[in-house]
Write a protein that binds this DNA or RNA. Structure first.
Length: 500
RNA sequence: GGCCCCAUCGUCUAGAGGCCUAGGACACGACCCUCUCAAGGUCGAGACACGGGUUCGAAUCCCGUUGGGGCUGCCA
C-alpha cells in the first residue's frame, strides 16, 4: 500500500516566491476577499466545484475571506432546493465559505439606489424596444446587438421600459486578467446593454458589480465564459465610481472551462456532472478535490497526489492553464481507488458504512461492524475504485441473498468436465478438515489440483463459483474462512445435488 | 456573421529560447507477481496543428493560416 497518500504535504519546491498579489491588485495592498457566485438554477456541477476550490485555496493562502453569494436575480428560474444543493456540495468538496450566503434577491434596495444615481448622472437611458424590433433593425448590421435606437429619444423611466447603459462610442476597455494578461475590447463592439429589466428587476451584470463593490471583492476568480462580459462590468464600475464612492476594481482571473468528450463546455442538462451524483456513486471528496484541482493547474513539484493543504500552499493564479480541460472519469476513478486504499481500515469501514447506509443497500449496515468484515476489509479496499463497489464484494456472506451468477456457473462448472469431481472431493476433504483456516483450505485444494494434474487457478474456479457465486472476487480461501465451515459445506452440497 | 479566448501523446499536464533524443500521470499493450479479480512492479507504443519570420539556436518569441471553444438574452 502507498504510504500516507493524501497526507503527503512535501511537494518538491521549485524556488517559488511568495505571491505578489498587491502588484496586480492595485497600488495599495488590500485584504483578499474572493467570492463564488453560483445561481440556483440547477445542480452544482464539477466546474463550479473547481472554481470554488481555487477561490477557497486562494483566500486561505492569503489569509483572506471566501464569500458565498447566491445569484438569484432571475426569479423565473431559481429554485430554493438548488440553494441547499450548493451549500451541501461546497461543504462536501471542502471549500467551505467564510461569509454568506448572501442572496441578491435580498439586496434589491442596494441595486435600486445605484440605478438612481446612474440615472441622475445620465449614464443610463430608458428603452422600450422589443427584442423583435431590435433584431429586425440590425439583421443586416455587421456588428449585431442593440443599435442605440433609444439613446437620444429622451424616454422617461417607467414600467415597460428597460434601462440601458450608454457605452462610450470610442476608446478601448482593457481587462487585466491574472491568468491571461491584458485583454482589450473596443468600446465600439460593446452594445448598450440592459441593466434593469422592463419589469424593474436588476440584471446579473448590474447586481454583480454592485455586490462586488459592496463586498470589497479583491479578486474575481471565475470561469472563462464570463470574460466577454467583463468589459461591461469594468465600464459600469467606472460609472459607479464617478457617481458615488470610488472603489478599486478587483483583479480578474478567468479560468479555462471544463469540457465534455465533444469538447463543449460542461452543462448541467447535457452532461451528468452534478457533484452530488459523484458522492452517491461512492467517490471520496478528497479524491474529487484532488482530481479537480489538477484540471487547469498543476503543482510546481509535479506530484499529482496532494491534499487541500498542499493546494493552499502551492496554488498560484499565474500558473493556471489557458486551455479547456476534459473531465476524465477514468483518471478520477484511479485517484479514487488510490485514496480508498490509503484509508485506515477503520476509516474505510466508516466511509463504506456511511455510503451503504445512505443508499439503503439491502445488505444492511450491520455487516460493517461484524468480525467478518474486519477480516475482509483490506482485501476489499484493494479491489474497489469507488465505495459503491464495496457491497458486491461481500454479498456472498449473506446466506439469504446468496445466489450463483448464471454466467459464472456456466463457465466454471457446467463447461468443466471435472468440476463435479473436484467439488465432491473438496466437500469431503473440507468436511474432515481439522482446522478451518485459509492456509489449511488452500492445501486441501492444492492436493486435489495435483491429483487432477491441474493448476490451482483452474481448480479453484468451480469451488469459488459454488461457494462465492462468481468467478471473480475476493481471495477464495480467506473468504471461505470467514464464511465458515457450515455454510461452505451447505453451498457445496447444494451445487453437488444439482450437478448429479 | 461579429467580438474574445485557446492550441504539447487519445486524455490531464511538465516545459519561462540551448538542460528536449520533449518528462510525468490516466487509459492502452507486454511481461513479472499470483488461487480468480484486483493491487503492485518492470518495459513498451504514443504529442510540440500548419506556414512564415526573429535568432547562432524555437515546443518556447512575433505574424498568418487552420482547427476548437466561449460570448453575442430584458439568463447567469
Amino acid at each position: 500500500m502507498r504510504s500516507g497518500l493524501p497526507q503527503t504535504g512535501d511537494l518538491r519546491r521549485r524556488g517559488v516566491t511568495a505571491p505578489a498579489i498587491t502588484d496586480q491588485a492595485g497600488p495599495s495592498p488590500r485584504p483578499v476577499r474572493v467570492r463564488i457566485a453560483p445561481s440556483p438554477t440547477g445542480y452544482f456541477h464539477v466546474g463550479g466545484a473547481r472554481t470554488a476550490l481555487y477561490n477557497w485555496a486562494f483566500a486561505r493562502q492569503h489569509g483572506g475571506v471566501f464569500v458565498l453569494r447566491i445569484e438569484d436575480t432571475d426569479t423565473e428560474r431559481n429554485k430554493e432546493e438548488w440553494v441547499q444543493g450548493i451549500l451541501d456540495a461546497l461543504r462536501w468538496i471542502g471549500a467551505e465559505w467564510d461569509e454568506g450566503p448572501y442572496r441578491q434577491s435580498e439586496r434589491r434596495a442596494l441595486y435600486d439606489e445605484s440605478v438612481d444615481r446612474l440615472w441622475a448622472a445620465g449614464a443610463l437611458y430608458a428603452c422600450d424596444c422589443t427584442r423583435e424590433a431590435v433584431l429586425a433593425r440590425t439583421k443586416d448590421n455587421p456588428t449585431p446587438g442593440y443599435d442605440g435606437h433609444c439613446r437620444e429619444r429622451g424616454l422617461e423611466r417607467g414600467p415597460g421600459r428597460a434601462l440601458r447603459f450608454a457605452v462610450p462610442d470610442d476608446g478601448v476597455t482593457v481587462v487585466h486578467d491574472l491568468v491571461r494578461g491584458d485583454v482589450e475590447f473596443s468600446n465600439s463592439t460593446i452594445e448598450d446593454f440592459v441593466i434593469v429589466k422592463s419589469n424593474g428587476d436588476p440584471l446579473f451584470v448590474l447586481a454583480v458589480v454592485i455586490d462586488d463593490r459592496d463586498m470589497a471583492i479583491s479578486h474575481v476568480i471565475r470561469a472563462e465564459e464570463h470574460l466577454p462580459t467583463t468589459p461591461k462590468a469594468v465600464l459600469l464600475w467606472g460609472a459607479l465610481n464617478e457617481t458615488g464612492p470610488a472603489v478599486d476594481l478587483p483583479a480578474f482571473a478567468h479560468l479555462p472551462v471544463l469540457v465534455n468528450a465533444k469538447r463543449q463546455k460542461i452543462s448541467k442538462r447535457r452532461d451528468r456532472v452534478a457533484l452530488e451524483d459523484y458522492e452517491a456513486d461512492g467517490y471520496l471528496p478528497e479524491a474529487m478535490a484532488n482530481y479537480l484541482s489538477l484540471l487547469g493547474w498543476s503543482p510546481p513539484g509535479g506530484e499529482e497526489l496532494f491534499s487541500l493543504d498542499d493546494l493552499v500552499r502551492e496554488f498560484r493564479l499565474e500558473n493556471v492553464n489557458h486551455s479547456p480541460a476534459f473531465f476524465d472519469n477514468q483518471k478520477l476513478l484511479h485517484f479514487n481507488g488510490l485514496y480508498i486504499r490509503s484509508l485506515t481500515p477503520e476509516e474505510f469501514t466508516r466511509r463504506a458504512r456511511a455510503w451503504a447506509a445512505a443508499v439503503h443497500h439491502p445488505l444492511g449496515i450491520e455487516l460493517y461492524s461484524s468480525p467478518q468484515w474486519r477480516e475482509l476489509a483490506p482485501l476489499v479496499a484493494e479491489r474497489v475504485a469507488t465505495l459503491a463497489d464495496v457491497p458486491a464484494y461481500v454479498e456472498f456472506l449473506f446466506g439469504d441473498s446468496f445466489e450463483i451468477e448464471p454466467a459464472s456457473y456456466e463457465k466454471a462448472i457446467a463447461k468443466d468436465a471435472e468440476a463435479g469431481a473436484i467439488l465432491s472431493e473438496m466437500r469431503s476433504r473440507l468436511g474432515a478438515v481439522s482446522a478451518w483456516a485459509a492456509e489449511v483450505l488452500k492445501s486441501e485444494l492444492e492436493a486435489i489440483a495435483e491429483a487432477h494434474g491441474r493448476k490451482l487457478g483452474k481448480t479453484q474456479a468451480p469451488v469459488r463459483v459454488a461457494t462465492l457465486g462468481r468467478t471473480v472476487g475476493l481471495p477464495l480461501f480467506e473468504s471461505l474462512e470467514v464464511l465458515g465451515r457450515d455454510e461452505t459445506l451447505r453451498r457445496l452440497d447444494a451445487v453437488l445435488a444439482a450437478v448429479s
